[in-house]
């Protein structure tokens, strides 16, 4: 129940803040360059929105151990890129129609989802790799050459994000109990993470 309330609050805040920010954007522009709210929605829709695919995955896993989301959202590069290109061309056409019709387009704005784009309006794109990570990665590029056929994109990681793919599996506590028994019945340990307390059972 609480998660539903959280979702509802979040949705309300998203909608409200999006509308206010959009209105403010309009007021910041000179009067001759101000756009109508519909035009602004089109413009926002054309901005890249890298977080959309991840948001779908997260939402799905909130509610279920695993999901069939992967079948709904194509996983291959070709399909995804194709979909994006289709989306862009659709938006471009409707905006052109809008200009030609001098503001009389009907319903085109409903074909895009500006809400998530509104959140990111004043945020810089998140940096992807830290300088230390970039530096360290230079020592591992041979892995790409030898073992990686094709880079896995973020939107292809739905299956990797499933709990069953985590090292501890769908019931992580079982590993903890088992580890406790093994360290008390055998003389060796290590390789399963460093967190944890000591035990006289050793």
């Amino acid at each position: 129940m609480k998660s539903h309330i959280n979702l509802l609050i979040s949705a309300v805040v998203l909608v409200f803040s999006g509308q206010v920010i959009a209105a403010e954007k309009l007021t910041l522009l000179p009067a001759d360059k101000q756009m109508s709210s519909e035009e602004f929605s089109y413009a926002l829709a054309q901005e890249p929105n890298p977080g959309t695919s991840n948001a779908r995955v997260v939402k799905k896993y909130k509610t279920k151990g695993r999901t069939s989301a992967t079948s709904k959202y194509p996983a291959t590069d070709e399909h995804t890129e194709q979909g994006r290109e289709q989306g862009k061309s659709l938006t471009t056409i409707t905006l052109a129609e809008k200009k030609n019709n001098a503001g009389n387009s009907v319903g085109s704005a409903k074909q895009v989802k500006p809400l998530l784009a509104l959140v990111a309006i004043d945020q810089k794109p998140p940096p992807s790799v830290s300088p230390a990570g970039q530096w360290l990665n230079k020592g591992f590029t041979w892995i790409d050459d030898w073992f990686i056929d094709k880079e896995v994109k973020p939107w292809q990681k739905a299956k990797l994000a499933e709990p069953v793919m985590s090292p501890a599996g769908v019931a992580p506590v079982m590993k903890k109990f088992a580890s406790k028994i093994y360290i008390s019945k055998a003389a060796t340990f290590g390789g399963d993470g460093i967190a944890g307390g000591g035990c006289g059972c050793k």
Partner: peptide
């Protein structure tokens, strides 16, 4: 007959843009 206290720290560092490594 046994007491144990521990502290631990670990750091996970991503190396590539796709967070694959």
């Amino acid at each position: 007959d046994y007491k144990s206290s521990s502290v631990s720290a670990s750091y996970l560092l991503f190396l590539d843009k796709g967070k694959n490594r």
